[in-house]
Design a protein around this nucleic acid. Structure first.
Lengths: 216, 216
DNA sequence: GATAAATGTTAGGTTAGGTTAACTTGATCA
DNA sequence: TGATCAAGTTAACCTAACCTAACATTTATC
């Protein structure tokens, strides 16, 4: 039984290993807010357990077993988030912290029941895919709103942030999953976006925010 | 923020301090399945935090602060159990283990929402009282079925066990909260009870089981 | 290709929580 | 009243997970 700490390392590694599957110690330690030696030490222990391939001074890579384990934790996290929003009436900005704790609960039946009650959802409330029971998940390639050109109209499909302030901000502005966004103008010097929000007004979003909004 | 370990010690102390409020180290260590020195050490640390009054070689007593903290953990446990049965369709024998983990979740809103969804229940699925937000709880004084005399008819109000085998056994025999039980005969030599179960048959229950069934 | 900067690693130490072995204290009972 | 036993305690040590300071290696830069 992996400890919650170990589970958090695995989850962080999965999140950091976007493209090549490689992760470096510095990023990992930053993501978990621990020192580099702490991350380094844990990574060795994960390697000893067959969850990570580790060679001194080389980038880290999750083994298939490690990746599967991480995805199953992510599955519990995202199922929980969906449950909290769908079945308990929480807002999408309130659920991350709770799910962060619930993801460590060891009870296959509990999560299976949740899944069943919701009708086997494939996405969490922020539009992120929920890994299946095998730990497999789709990775739809949405564009970032920040990359959309002036004149285009797109639909919000996912929000890649867990910052509750940003999520509340979006809600206040009338932006949610499925919302149609028309990019009116892109400010040349800082990349900020003037956007017409369908059913609401026109707002200016920073490039940073634009990078968190995944659209289609 | 108390660690889950500390919370478990407090909860165990509350459970063990039935009558006088006193708890001894040996019982505490047994309840938590740790060594006596481990319990002894933790108790000193709890005392330093003002949660327990501790004097060498004297029985332990929770301070009012410690008792309140323990009751609030128990509240989370029992609210969770009720939620799992009422809202998620689990059987009363399946919920203890899950609640044991969920009780450590730090999120007042989460438990408040649960409470609200269920309409502020005052008992858990086993008939045990749920402490209120202040940590206060009723302690109804039911009799043990084992103390009921032959000829009497009583109603099951609570089951003071968390052994899932016993709970499944009761379910299989048609015994649940509210079930009417008529004591037909008490075996003199071992105290076992022959009981007529309303709506089901006649069964023999050991004195041990009789002690877990709280009736009225 | 040498050197600075960034990245990774080792060494040594801390804390929380646990262990066993050995000892002290208090309770019990002839 | 003293011997005995259970209960409580102390001592010494273990592991997981963390820290800082110092050192090693790789990468980037001129």
């Amino acid at each position: 039984m992996p400890s919650p700490t170990v589970e958090n390392y695995l989850k962080a590694m999965l999140a950091l290993s976007r493209d090549s599957g490689e992760v470096n110690v510095t990023d990992l330690s930053a993501a978990l807010a621990v020192s580099k030696p702490a991350a380094n030490g844990m990574v060795k222990s994960l390697a000893a357990q067959g969850l990570v391939t580790y060679e001194r001074y080389k980038p880290l890579v999750l083994t298939s077993e490690g990746r599967r384990a991480a995805a199953l934790i992510l599955r519990k996290h995202r199922l929980t988030e969906m449950y909290l929003v769908d079945q308990m009436g929480f807002g999408w900005e309130e659920v991350h912290e709770i799910a962060e704790q619930m993801e460590h609960i060891q009870s296959p039946r509990f999560f299976a029941r949740m899944d069943e009650i919701m009708g086997f959802p494939t996405q969490d409330p922020h539009g992120s895919p929920i890994p299946d029971r095998e730990g497999e998940m789709e990775r739809p390639d949405y564009r970032m709103l920040a990359d959309v050109l002036a004149g285009e109209t797109v639909v919000l499909r996912a929000v890649s942030t867990q910052a509750d302030e940003l999520l509340s901000f979006l809600t206040r502005k009338g932006i949610g999953l499925g919302t149609e966004l028309a990019v009116v103008e892109v400010e040349a010097f800082d990349g900020s976006l003037r956007v017409r929000i369908k059913g609401a007004g026109v707002e200016v979003l920073t490039r940073e925010v634009g990078r968190s909004l995944l659209v289609e």
